[in-house]
Design a protein around this nucleic acid. Structure first.
Lengths: 346, 346
DNA sequence: AAGACTCAAGAAAACGCTTACCTGTGGACG
DNA sequence: CGTCCACAGGTAAGCGTTTTCTTGAGTCTT
């Protein structure tokens, strides 16, 4: 159905000049009034504000940015929006930043560091003041390029800022360790782990190391901690679980680097008749919605993704003032005990 | 750990002038070369391109936008990124638009039409060329404001462009109808439906109407189609299912307006010992990941969310050329038959 | 061989805004 | 009563591009 509206062929867009004209003052005064510059008198200011409101004036951001070099625009590069954990983070970021009158541009890299570098270039061109990245590991050019363009970099999901301007995350190592401690308390002594792909992914690596090293430190033999890697998908989780269940002696507890993998693991067990948690306990990571949906409900480690986004936003706002560098903020993860874990079978 | 890097205090940013200088030509020629303007000769062009590459030149977008009035920036306002169905759409949109050198700014409205209007204003100020919205129903001011600022509006999830510049979606009515047809073929004659909240939500309403009217047209009595509404959450789905199961005679098939609701419904049945699909068949909508996770796996209607985002991107790109209005593109939904549906109990 | 024409490339204006600098007014002070 | 100062408000210079207009060199036509 073609529109029968008058069609706005040459939509007259209101400029600062129009406002000034209407308020009966100069461009400069109008600009100052709108920017709360104290040197403009009360009556003048009121007239300008009224004129702007009546005309529905919206400032042209390109012009403002070009002239004043203040951006109020940040970029974020995440692997994919498909994964709820990133979507939530972005949601938090966006929310907090919107309150500060700042917009966010999203780019996705599909876990490809080359693409990430490209996106970073694009964001620079776009004139962002900061870029939010995921994890510690990046093409060195990426951080360099950003830094030399004067764009600050905030890392998320990692407790370590490294070369970046700031970081907000949690301790992946400690989180992995806490899973191990909990399972040890339940008397488990033979473990499996289904980690995400650790190449270019420090988060996956740290979770693994925290888990494995804690188990070893408690006297578990190296042979009794079997670690596999899998891409983040339900199918891959299931396949890995199959492999683990074919080892002998079988692990009695399996820690997964993501709920996605854990769901695959649980589904595999149900399909082949292995009882969860009777025969094997399973722990996930992230506390995604699916952790609630699968049966039995998943014991998992809750990651405060939304808060992380909000904190990243705070960092960006702080960075506007001080030129500090290397700040890093840590959030806490929580082990949520649900139905997929239990004492080791005797 | 504070950074020990030299710190880039006055990061020299490369401008077009620098490129021109290095290539030994004028600003104008450099600009033309970089924009593939055919009037510049091969040798000159190569020199400019080489110089730009060497210096790592990235054009200043504000300046470009200010001068050329082409924005290469679009906004999208969705209810929330938390819901996979929207995240996927945005992902598709972003992906396709990035190829065209266009960035996207995301805003979330939390299903609040007032907030949506505000976000729209913000996006206008930001200088977007188009805004992507969800659904047909909006504060009339929103579309108006956008239109009079010369910003085109693309609607998604709806087959009808209404007053907007374009729409890309699917037929919610027909999708609801197809669920009813399928269940009728399985000899079901008493139905329940758990719809999303239909206030300000034409999508939820159309799905309901399609389902209900198809059932009635097949001779099912009005009393045998019980419709409830629930907000999109697992818990609400469960609670609604409880109510439906308490009616007498009980429906033998329930259609849910979203997989989220369907998952709640399935979980409730399992909790109280109602067999799915033995005693009651359940159909979802959206084909979210959780449809695979729940047990039994959910029969559902697949919505091509990512494609929808991509098509929206195409529409935007087309709109740049022609000033056409009212185009609407339709995608197909597919009924995916899995394990949560079966013949009516005799 | 001279005029008309084509075409690559340069000079400079323009995009809409902010801000450094300047001007003119009124009040305080000597 | 004159001088100086404070201060509201105006003028105009840019911010980094794109694009129009112009120029000059070469090519073609007759």
């Amino acid at each position: 159905m073609p529109s029968q509206k008058p069609d706005h062929p040459r939509a007259k867009v209101i400029k600062l000049k129009d406002v000034a004209l209407r308020a009966g003052c100069s461009l400069a005064t109008a600009s100052r009034a709108l920017n709360n510059n104290p040197t403009v008198g009360q009556s003048e200011r009121d007239r300008v504000l009224a004129a702007a409101a009546q005309l529905g004036y919206v400032p042209n951001n390109s012009a403002r940015t070009l002239r004043s070099q203040t951006k109020h625009l940040v970029g974020v590069i995440i692997p994919t929006l498909d994964h709820a954990i990133y979507a939530k983070m972005v949601d938090g970021l966006q929310d907090r930043l919107a309150q500060a009158g700042t917009s966010v541009i999203i780019n996705t890299s599909s876990y490809d560091l080359d693409r990430e570098l490209n996106q970073a270039r694009l964001l620079i061109a776009r004139g962002v003041e900061s870029v939010v990245l995921v994890g510690l590991e990046h093409d060195p050019h990426t951080l360099e390029t950003l830094a030399s363009a004067g764009v600050s970099q905030i890392l998320t999901y990692t407790g370590n800022a490294g070369q970046a301007s700031g970081a907000v995350g949690f301790d992946n190592y400690a989180s992995g360790a806490s899973a191990a401690k909990y399972l040890l308390e339940l008397n488990h002594r033979r473990f499996g782990m289904i980690a995400g792909l650790t190449r270019h992914n420090d988060r996956a690596r740290l979770r693994r190391d925290g888990f494995v090293e804690t188990a070893l430190a408690a006297g578990v033999s190296r042979d009794d901690v079997v670690v596999l890697e899998a891409p983040y998908s339900i199918e891959a989780g299931g396949a890995s679980m199959r492999s683990l269940m074919e080892t002998y002696p079988r692990p009695t507890a399996v820690f997964c680097g993501s709920d996605i993998l854990a769901v695959g693991a649980v589904k595999h067990c149900r399909a082949v008749g292995i009882e969860v948690p009777g025969a094997v306990s399973i722990i996930g990571f992230d506390n995604l919605e699916i952790a609630h949906v699968v049966e039995p409900e998943l014991t998992t480690i809750d990651v405060p993704a939304r808060e992380m986004g909000q904190m990243a936003a705070e960092s960006i706002i702080e960075l506007r003032q001080s030129r500090q560098t290397g700040l890093s903020k840590k959030l806490q993860t929580r082990l949520l005990i649900r139905q997929s874990t239990g004492p080791a079978p005797s």
